[in-house]
C-alpha cells in the first residue's frame, strides 16, 4: 500500500508539474467559462422576465454552468496528455517499471484535479464578485466546490478512458464537438419547464448534463434541494465509475503486459 501511495504521488506530481508548465491549457480553462458567463449573463438577462423563471438574476442562473464548462477542459486536457504519453511511448516506459495501472490513471488525474480546484475557486469568486449569491450559504458554497471538483475529475476520467481506448490526441480533439453537443443540448441556458420546443425539452430531460447543472444551480438559486443534489452526485459517481474504472480496465488491455 505504501508503494502504491508513493507511485500515485510521484505520478501525480509529474501530472501537476506538466499542467503548470502548459499555460495554453490553463488560461483558456479559466478564461473561457468566465467570458461565456459574462456574455450570457448580459445577453440573456431579459429571460428573467419570462413567467416562471427561477431567478431575477441571469448571472445567478448561469453561474452553475461555468463549473461544468470548466470540466470540459478537464476532459480534453487529461485525454490529450494521456494520449500524448501513449503516442510518444512514455506510457511504455512507465509500463516497464513495477507501477500499477490504477496508480497510472490516478496519478494522471492529479494535474486536472489541481486545476479543477483553482477553477472552482475562481468561478465562484468571480460570480460572487459580480453580485451572485449562494442561497445555500457557506456550507452550500463548500458543497458547490466539492461537486464542481468531482464533476471535473469525472469528466477527466472520461477523457482518460477515450485516450486509452483510442491512443490518439487527434481523436480526443475530434470528440470535442460531441462533448460540446452534450453541454448545449441541456438545460444550460433555460430551465427545462420554460423550453418551448418539445423535442429539445425531451433531449434536455434525458441528458445527464442537465442534472449536473441543475444540482449545481440548486445550491445557488434554491438552497438545499435534496433530490437535485442526489441526482447530480449520483451521476458524478456513475461517470467516475465508467470513466476512471473504464480507463483502468482499458489500460490493462493496452499495456498487454502480463
Amino acid at each position: 500500500m505504501r508503494e502504491f501511495t508513493r507511485q500515485v504521488s510521484v505520478l501525480g506530481r509529474r501530472s501537476i508539474v506538466r499542467t503548470l508548465r502548459q499555460p495554453a491549457s490553463i488560461v483558456p480553462a479559466l478564461l473561457f467559462p468566465l467570458i461565456l458567463l459574462a456574455v450570457n449573463a448580459g445577453g440573456l438577462r431579459s429571460a428573467t422576465d419570462l413567467e416562471g423563471f427561477p431567478s431575477e438574476s441571469f448571472l445567478d442562473f448561469a453561474l452553475g454552468f461555468a463549473f461544468l464548462q470548466g470540466a470540459v477542459f478537464a476532459t480534453v486536457n487529461c485525454g490529450t496528455d494521456l494520449a500524448r504519453d501513449i503516442q510518444t511511448g512514455f506510457l511504455n516506459r512507465l509500463a516497464l517499471t513495477p507501477v500499477r495501472g490504477v496508480a497510472l490513471i490516478l496519478g494522471q488525474l492529479a494535474g486536472v484535479a489541481a486545476l479543477a480546484v483553482v477553477q472552482a475557486l475562481v468561478f465562484l469568486g468571480a460570480g460572487l464578485a459580480a453580485g451572485a449569491s449562494v442561497r445555500a450559504g457557506i456550507a452550500g458554497a463548500l458543497v458547490l466546490l466539492i461537486l464542481s471538483f468531482l464533476v471535473s475529475v469525472a469528466f477527466a476520467g472520461v477523457g482518460a478512458l477515450l485516450a486509452v481506448r483510442t491512443g490518439s490526441g487527434e481523436a480526443i480533439q475530434g470528440l470535442f464537438p460531441l462533448v460540446f453537443a452534450g453541454l448545449f443540448l441541456s438545460s444550460m441556458n433555460m430551465p427545462r419547464n420554460l423550453i418551448e420546443a418539445d423535442w429539445f425539452r425531451a433531449i434536455a430531460t434525458i441528458n445527464p448534463v442537465s442534472y449536473l447543472i441543475e444540482g449545481l444551480r440548486s445550491l445557488i438559486l434554491e438552497g438545499w434541494n435534496a433530490l437535485a443534489l442526489l441526482l447530480s452526485f449520483g451521476i458524478v459517481a456513475a461517470l467516475i465509475l465508467v470513466g476512471i474504472g473504464g480507463a483502468i480496465l482499458a489500460l490493462r488491455t493496452r499495456l498487454a503486459r502480463v
Binding site: 507511485q7 510521484v10 505520478l11 509529474r14 506538466r18 510518444t88 516506459r93 517499471t97 507501477v99
Partner: peptide
C-alpha cells in the same frame, strides 16, 4: 525503445526522480 520516450515538459532530474521512485 525507439524514439526516446521522454516528457518534453520535465527536466532530466525530474525524469530520474520519477523513474527511481517507480522502481521502488
Amino acid at each position: 525503445l525507439q524514439e526516446a520516450a521522454l516528457d518534453p515538459l520535465l527536466t532530466a532530474r525530474e525524469h530520474m526522480r520519477l523513474q527511481t521512485t517507480l522502481h521502488g
